[in-house]
Nucleic acid binder design. Structure first.
Lengths: 277, 277
DNA sequence: TGAATAGTGTCTGTGAGACAATATTAT
DNA sequence: ATAATATTGTCTCACAGACACTATTCA
C-alpha cells in the first residue's frame, strides 16, 4: 500500500486494463422550409436530420451521424462541438447529451462506446456551409405503441428504418430500442435517431428548446408548424397560442406578402427577461 | 484503400489511439422505513442512497457510489448489474442509464469516463445482504432555483454537499451541474447524486417507477409517503388518491394494528393488466 | 375515550379542447 | 371577390387544489 495519494498516483499503471474506444456522435435536427406552388400557402416544413456518407470501411457508402473518436484531453461534449463545427460550420448551438450506446458488437472493428448528443439548429443560419459529404434528410416518422418507423429522404435517396420499443420488466429504459429494419444506416444509428426523436418530442412539451430551431423573429403560425411537424399532429390554433404566449413576446414587426392577413412577428422571451431584470 | 469490409477489418489497428478508461457507476436509491416511538404513528420514511467507503487511493476513506471498470466484453449496463449484485445481492431490479460524466480531470489517475446508472430498490427485500463497506445514507434534500443541497446521514457519519445548476445559454443540459461544496464524496459523485435526484423527481410524476421501490402489497398512505419524501413536500390526500387510483388495484387484504382505522392494501396494476389480457 | 390515520364528498377555479366568428391581405 | 391565413371569443368539460367530513381502530 502507498502512504498517500501522491505516491499512489505516481505508481498507477493506466495500461493494465484493455480499454474500449470512445466516440462522440451528434444527432443534428432541424426543421426545413420548403416553398411550394400556391403563392398564398405557407411554406411546408419538414423535420430533418443531418447525415454523412461514410467514405471508409466499415459501412462504406452507408449514411451515419457525424461523429468521431474523442481526444484523450477532450470531453465528449467538446468533441461533439468540434464535429458540429466541421460539418455545419455552426457554433454556439444547442447541444445536449442524449444517451450512451455501448452494445459490445455495435462496431465490427472493436469495442466502441458512443456517447451521443442531440443538437438543434436553425437551418436558415447555415448557407452552403455543409461539408460536402453531408446531407440533410427529411424525415417522416410513424410511431405507435411498439414501433417507430422513419422514412428518410434527401431528394436523391430515400430509405427507411424501424425500431421496436420493447419494455423489459425491471430494466425499463426508454432508449433501449431494438433495430427491426435497417439497410442504409451505419452502426446502431437507427437507435440513436429514434431515441433522439423521442427525446425531442418529450422536451418540446415541457421546455423551451424549440426556440433553438427558430430564427430571431418568427410568426406564431411558423412556430406552430414546427411543433406540428415534430409532434406529427395538428394542433388547435387557439390552444397553441394560449400555451405559447407566456414564452414569447410580440414585436411591432409584421410579416406581409402572403396573400392573406399579415402576421405579427414574435421573439423568444427567454433572453429578453434576463436583460430586463 | 481496402477492397472490402473484411479486408479492412483484418488490417485495422485498434491500438492507434490513446483511449480513456470507462467505468459504470450505480446510484442506488431506496426509501427507508424508520419506526419511531408512538405506536399510533406511521413509520417515518427517508429517501436513501447507497454509498461505499473507498479503501484505496485515490480518495481513500471517502464515500463513493458503487461502481467499477467495465470489462472489454461487457456493456455498461451489465457492469452496473454486476456491481449491484455484488454490493446488495439484489438482481432483477430497476436500472436505467442516467448520464455519462466525462470531465477530463474528474479522476486524478487518468482519463476516466463514467457511465452512471440509477437503480431503485425496495430496501425491505435485502436483509443483511449489504457488502461490509457499503452503507445506506438518509438524504435531506434542499432545492431552489440555483442550488441543490444534500445532507447525508448513515447514523455514524453526517455530511453535506451542494451543487449549483447553472444554465449556459446554448448548451443547456439539465445535468451540467457544478460542485459548490463537497468534502466527503469521491470524484464528481455529488454531480451524479444531484442528477439522479433530479431525474427521479421528474420521472416520479410521469412514469410508474415508484413501484420499483415498493413491496408487492402496500397501503396508499405508504405510497403517498414515498412520493412525499422524494418530492420533499406534503401532498393532499384526496388529490393523491385520485391520481394514483388508475395505477393501482385494491386487494381484499388490509393492514391492521396501528391504533387507527385499518388500511386497504393495494398492488401495482402494471403486471396485473398483462395477465388479465 | 381519544389520538391517529383511512377514506370520501364536494366546491371552486384553471386551463385545455372544440368550434365559431372576425380580420386582413395579394391576386 | 376569393382563397388563405391570422387572431380572438367563448362554451364546455375534466381535473387539481382545498377543505370539510365521516370511518375505524387500539392502548
Amino acid at each position: 500500500m502507498y502512504r498517500n495519494e501522491e505516491e499512489f498516483l505516481s505508481h498507477y499503471d493506466s495500461s493494465k486494463f484493455e480499454k474500449p474506444s470512445v466516440t462522440s456522435d451528434v444527432l443534428v435536427f432541424s426543421v426545413a422550409d420548403e416553398p411550394q406552388g400556391n403563392y398564398r400557402k405557407l411554406n411546408e416544413k419538414h423535420f430533418a436530420v443531418l447525415l454523412v456518407k461514410r467514405t471508409d470501411y466499415p459501412f462504406k457508402d452507408k449514411w451515419c451521424l457525424p461523429g468521431g473518436f474523442i481526444g484523450i484531453d477532450e470531453t465528449t461534449n467538446e468533441a461533439a462541438k468540434r464535429v458540429l463545427k466541421s460539418e455545419t460550420n455552426l457554433e454556439d448551438i444547442y447541444l445536449e447529451q442524449l444517451y450512451t450506446f455501448d452494445e459490445v458488437k455495435r462496431d465490427p472493428r472493436m469495442r466502441i462506446i458512443s456517447v451521443s448528443y442531440m443538437a438543434l439548429v436553425d437551418k436558415n443560419k447555415l448557407q452552403n456551409k455543409l461539408s460536402n459529404n453531408a446531407s440533410w434528410f427529411n424525415m417522416k416518422v410513424l410511431e405507435d405503441d411498439k414501433t417507430i418507423s422513419v422514412t428518410l429522404d434527401n431528394g436523391n435517396e430515400s430509405f427507411s428504418f424501424s425500431v421496436g420499443k420493447e419494455l423489459r420488466e425491471h430494466t425499463t429504459d426508454r432508449y433501449e430500442y431494438k433495430v427491426i429494419k435497417n439497410e442504409n444506416l451505419a452502426f446502431d444509428h437507427p437507435l440513436v435517431i429514434a431515441s433522439g426523436i423521442s427525446r425531442l418530442k418529450n422536451k418540446l412539451e415541457y421546455t423551451d428548446i424549440v426556440f433553438n430551431m427558430m430564427p430571431e423573429y418568427f410568426t406564431l403560425g411558423e412556430l406552430q408548424q414546427v411543433y406540428e411537424v415534430i409532434l406529427n399532429k395538428k394542433l388547435l390554433d387557439p390552444a397553441f397560442r394560449r400555451i405559447i404566449s407566456s414564452k414569447v413576446i410580440k414585436t411591432d414587426k409584421v410579416k406581409t406578402g402572403g396573400g392573406h392577413r399579415p402576421s405579427v412577428l414574435f421573439k423568444y422571451k427567454g433572453k429578453y427577461e434576463e436583460i430586463s431584470k
